[in-house]
Amino acid sequence: MKAHDNSLKYFSLGTIWLWLIVFALLPFALVTLASFASHDDTHLLTTPATLLNYFQLNNAIYLKIFKQSFYIASTCTVICLLLGYPFAYTIARMQSRYKSLLMLLIIIPFWTSSLIRTYSMITMLKPKGIINSILLWTGIIDKPLPLLFSDTSVMIGLVYNLLPFMVLPLLTNIERLDNRLIDAARDLGANRFTTFRRIILPLTMPGILSGSILVFLPAMTIFYIPDLLGGSKSILLGNLIQNQFLIAQNWPLGSAISVVFTLILAVMLLVYWHSMGNKERDLL
């Protein structure tokens, strides 16, 4: 029986390892190799090996693209946190039989592809769309608002798509919060604000951090939302990499951008990892 358990364990672990090696490590190794290659008119990749692709990245335009992506992703994360925290808190502390229904409602949008939901946002925001029609009909405005193809619509789309990634880790975290600690704080004379600042906030910090990471990382690279809702007027990191591979046919440079980006994200994850205590690490 014991031996049987072990083989099952090894099989499932082996499958996961194999999966990660074939579909994550191997492709990344190939991209890393490609980032040191040269390219010419007839070859996508060729020798000699070079560092030139990395030197090319030290270019004002790429730094600008990175800064822009970083700025958009940070803004989106902050908005998601401000919207998501009170939301998650309310649901988690709620004593209602509808609680599981409300949690289900957060999950339901995932049943539809994010791309399709982004297209449906276009229908909401366009000049003849639902929001403008309602506002016109009620007489609040007399001319359609130019909502679509602006920075506002990009932010609406990003927050809409990524909010659940903020809410779900927060929910799990807040639900585990020990009520007795809050009661004790109140008994000892802390007001609501102090209780929140000194007790609730520090205890839910792991949820805030993992939610923020889950929102920030995709927000850096989701290229179709700025494309569809912003009218492709600016280039973000995702588009930049895609263009180097498909339009400019410069695979080495595209690979170098991907590698640098992956490294930056890895560093951010490490910082996050170190910022947590041992106990929280175990909880993850």
Partner: peptide, 8 residues
């Protein structure tokens, strides 16, 4: 094209 879209 990149410069154009980044306003640079």
């Amino acid at each position: 094209w990149e410069q154009l879209k980044m306003g640079g």
